[in-house]
Nucleic acid binder design. Structure first.
Length: 801
RNA sequence: GCCGCUAUGGUGGAAUUGGCAGACACAAGGGACUUAAAAUCCCUCGGAAGAAAUUCCGUACCGGUUCGACCCCGGUUAGCGGCACCA
């Protein structure tokens, strides 16, 4: 009989849909397992072959966990707000809602064609008002706790999308989406105080099981550093506060630098004799885009503030002050103490301006470069610190500063607050109104959801205002506080809003009293296993951890962390080893693969392609091997012989295979799990025929990988019910070992022979057997055996001299 | 520049974490079946020498530790990812 994958896959997909086979059960007394993959943005291009790599891997985990008896939640939904949809809508004059609906329909049918065991009863969509009601609700809670605030600030402005970007969305000074240059603009924006959670976002990483590269990347992004704030005096009497991680080098300070935007430039304008030059420098720096700033980075520039001096608190010395754009206004205090002997940037600057360089930590050669090593240096030329190690000096000087009232211990972060406003239509409206009398006011929770108005012109205004601003009948409202006239906020939330809590909604997706019931959250949370792309490590993953911690603090969710475990898949590259893209012409369409080879082959191939965590190039010939394997599996249906158990010659292989496949699935080593099943099939073929007992085990083991064909063969063989309702096979550890093993004989570490022995042979017997192996005796003849090494189950090594 | 990761046949990749390098596949070559092709089945397949048994070399490069190193240590090179004047 021929393997008709099209008919088989259609049949089983229909059955799963009709019978809701994979819906999570409402019984909260069962052991639970919550598997999660990142819900996609339903783009116009349809599914990419990269999507199924992640979805199939956790589908395999979910299917196996079900057979292990867990109540599994494996949900799917749509992260559907966002710019590409809006741009498409503008170009083609179709409402974004319609565009979204069409794209979702396409994605959904594509996902279904892959036989993924999602719980479609819990499908969610971030653009659904019944969903974004709760996104808005969370925003209001953040506002009430002072974690959402409006601020005039210098923001990243994408010249292409005409929209403000979060720091996380700026890549090399360009927009991560459209790659247009990003410039700075002062705008009034809603901000979320993620920095209030910076410490916990780092510290709590120790309580979860994330792969290392995710943990380190999040730590680097948050960028925590420990140091001190030191107060310098000035000849103007103003105090100048700087942040440093090296207070131990205070005696080596020879000048100071402030950011061009620092407030003292204007405050001291009268006293600075070259103020015109200083202002010209500041204006030039302001006009540079981020891109230009990074491009031109290397050569240090700056202007000295003539007529003003700073005073070093440790020795009272007067030192000059400069402005330079290598000091950032947005980090620390926007001012630094410069220690050219022990900081390479200060060193470079000092060389350009001919400033003195003092050595205060011995161990390097400061005539060549700054000496920045903290571990080995010893303090010199540093008053009471002289002779101490760097670490001791840090402690000593910080204590001194605090005692003298000239400084405090301080921790700083690179992380900035999250810019939360977008000047666009297709996003959640921010539920705030502005009243001339009362200022910004939240709308009452009873008015949620605040729906987007129906409009037809989505173009941003000339100054980058939101398209909503033109719709005065929506904008004009009354103040919830005083009842007077007020205006709605016309900016919308960024795409990251809806995805920051979606995993909570899956727990109880139809609840209209709360974002999810406490019982459902208590049962399902945390997510047991979350797989997704590395590109979301500093965006979605960080944002959603922040929101979750906030919701934990206000008692809405029961856990401090949303995800117990996080893994990440590698990219699938084009056949030429490059990233798949339309312009490179190397895009593989999953629909074509499913059509040509079937979903089971596609799933199997994407899992067999290589190490799950690494990038792997697509190969249109390798996929044939997977198809061939499934065809051979299908042929087993005609080779059935009587017998419920494993035949003796296959028993060990079956027990080993069950063990290996079980373990590999939980380590995402799908490639070796599949290789094990391929080897097992080779052995079965050698053994001529397959017993019903063997067949049964084989089909269940293969089922998570290739669910359609295995269910069909199961039914054809007349086994009871469906595999989806049976249980995972068990193995006996004692039967995983062969009775007879081949052992290796080495002489001085070189392979010289082999012998077959009983698996539990003891050391003496093994060594004796090794010496008896043909040819070994001749090689040890006349030499002294200085050492005999026996590795059970592996080898005997005779070290001779 | 800093942080992290990677390097194994013609290709994708295995190797129980210090114990037989190359599992499982793909490609290639040879053969069987066929009028022929496709499909399928069988054989070969890291390099060198040899008729063969077998021997030597071989996991980016140089060195070290060890009875024994793809694996551990020191150094170098190349590639990928992240950050990038964060004081």
């Amino acid at each position: 009989m021929k393997y008709d994958f099209k008919a088989i896959e259609k049949k089983w997909q229909q059955k799963w849909e009709d019978e809701h086979t994979f819906s999570a059960k409402q019984d909260f007394s069962l052991p639970k397992f919550y598997a999660l993959v990142e819900f996609p943005y339903p783009s116009g291009q349809g599914l990419h072959v990269g999507h199924p790599r992640s979805y199939t891997a956790l589908d395999i985990v979910a299917r196996k966990k079900r057979l292990d008896g867990y109540n599994v939640l494996y949900p799917m939904g749509w992260d559907a707000f966002g710019l590409p949809t809006e741009n498409f809508a503008m170009k083609n004059h179709i409402h974004p809602e319609i565009v979204t609906k069409n794209n979702v329909a396409r994605f959904k049918s594509q996902l279904k064609s892959l036989g993924l065991s999602f719980d479609w009863d819990r499908e969610i969509n971030t653009t659904d008002p019944s969903y974004y009601k709760w996104t808005q609700w969370i925003f209001l809670q953040l506002y009430k706790k002072g974690l959402a605030y409006k601020k005039e600030m210098n923001v990243n402005w994408c010249t292409g999308c005409k929209v403000v970007l979060a720091n996380e969305e700026v890549v090399n000074g360009t927009c991560e989406r459209c790659h247009s240059p990003v410039v700075h603009k002062v705008k009034s924006q809603w901000m979320l105080r993620i920095t209030a959670y910076a410490d916990r976002l780092i510290d709590d990483l120790d309580t979860v099981n994330f792969i290392d590269r995710v943990t380190t990347q999040q730590k680097n992004w948050i960028g925590r550093s420990h140091g001190a704030e030191v107060t310098f005096g000035t000849t103007e009497g103003d105090e100048m506060i700087v942040y440093t991680t090296r207070p131990d080098t205070l005696f080596g300070v020879t000048y100071m630098v402030i950011a061009p935007e620092h407030k003292f430039v204007d405050k001291w304008a009268d006293k600075i004799s070259n103020i015109d030059e200083v202002r010209a420098y500041r204006d030039a720096a302001a006009h540079k885009s981020d891109f230009e700033r990074t491009e031109l980075a290397k050569e240090k520039t700056g202007v000295r503030l003539d007529g003003v001096m700073a005073i070093n608190p440790v020795n009272g010395k007067q030192i000059p002050i400069f402005v330079s754009d290598y000091v950032l206004a947005s980090y620390g205090t926007g001012a630094i103490m410069a220690v050219p002997g022990h900081d390479q940037r200060d060193y470079d600057f000092a060389k350009v301006f001919g400033l003195p360089i003092i050595e205060v930590v011995a161990g390097g050669d400061i005539t060549k470069e700054a000496f920045t090593d903290c571990a080995t240096g010893v303090m010199v030329n540093s008053g009471f610190l002289t002779g101490m190690s760097v670490d001791d000096a840090k402690v000593a000087i910080t204590e001194w500063l605090e005692k003298e009232g000239k400084g405090v211990k301080k921790t700083n972060f690179k992380l900035r607050d999250w810019v939360f406003s977008r000047q666009r239509y297709w996003g959640e409206p921010i539920p705030m109104v502005y009243c001339e009398k009362c200022g910004w006011q939240p709308i009452p929770e009873s008015e949620l959801p605040l729906k987007l108005p129906e409009i037809s012109d989505y173009e941003p205004g000339p100054e980058g205002e939101s398209p909503l601003a033109r719709h005065t009948d929506w904008v004009n409202t009354t103040c919830p506080c005083c009842g007077g006239p007020a205006k709605r906020e016309t900016d919308t939330m960024p795409q990251w809003a809806g995805s920051s809590w979606y995993f909570l909604r899956y727990c109880d997706p139809h609840n209209d009293e709360a974002l999810a019931s406490p019982e459902a959250l208590k049962y399902w949370m945390p997510v047991d296993w979350y797989n997704g792309g590395m590109e979301h490590t500093t965006l979605h993953l960080l944002y959603s951890r922040f929101w979750h911690k906030f919701l934990y603090d206000i008692g809405v969710v029961p856990t401090a962390e949303p995800y117990a475990k996080r893994t990440s898949h590698g990219m699938i590259l084009g056949e030429n080893g490059e990233k798949m893209s339309k312009s490179r012409g190397n895009v593989v369409n999953p629909d074509d693969i499913v059509d040509q080879y079937g979903a089971d082959t596609m799933r199997l191939y994407e899992m067999f392609i290589g190490d799950f965590e690494k990038a792997a190039p697509w190969s249109s010939s390798s996929i044939k091997g997977c198809k061939r394997f499934l065809e051979r599996v299908f042929d087993l249906s005609e080779k059935l012989i009587d017998g419920d158990g494993y035949r003796p010659q296959l028993e060990t292989s079956f027990h080993k295979a069950i063990k290996k496949v079980s373990e590999d699935i939980l380590q995402l080593k799908m490639n070796t799990a599949i290789a094990t099943l391929m080897s097992l099939l080779n052995e079965i073929d050698d053994a001529k025929g397959i017993t019903r007992g063997e067949y049964r085990t084989f089909l269940v083991l293969l089922n998570p990988f290739a669910p359609h064909i295995t269910e069909e063969l199961w039914e054809m063989a007349g086994f009871e019910g469906q595999i989806a309702q049976t249980s995972w096979p068990t193995y006996d550890e004692s039967k995983c070992k062969d009775a007879q093993i081949e052992m290796v004989v080495q002489i001085s570490g070189k392979l010289r022979g082999r012998f077959v022995a009983d698996a539990n042979i003891d050391k003496e017997a093994a060594i004796a057997a090794a010496k008896a192996v043909e040819g070994i005796a001749a090689q040890i003849e006349g030499k002294t055996i200085v050492k005999e090494i026996y590795v059970p189950g592996k080898l005997v090594n005779l070290v001779v001299r």
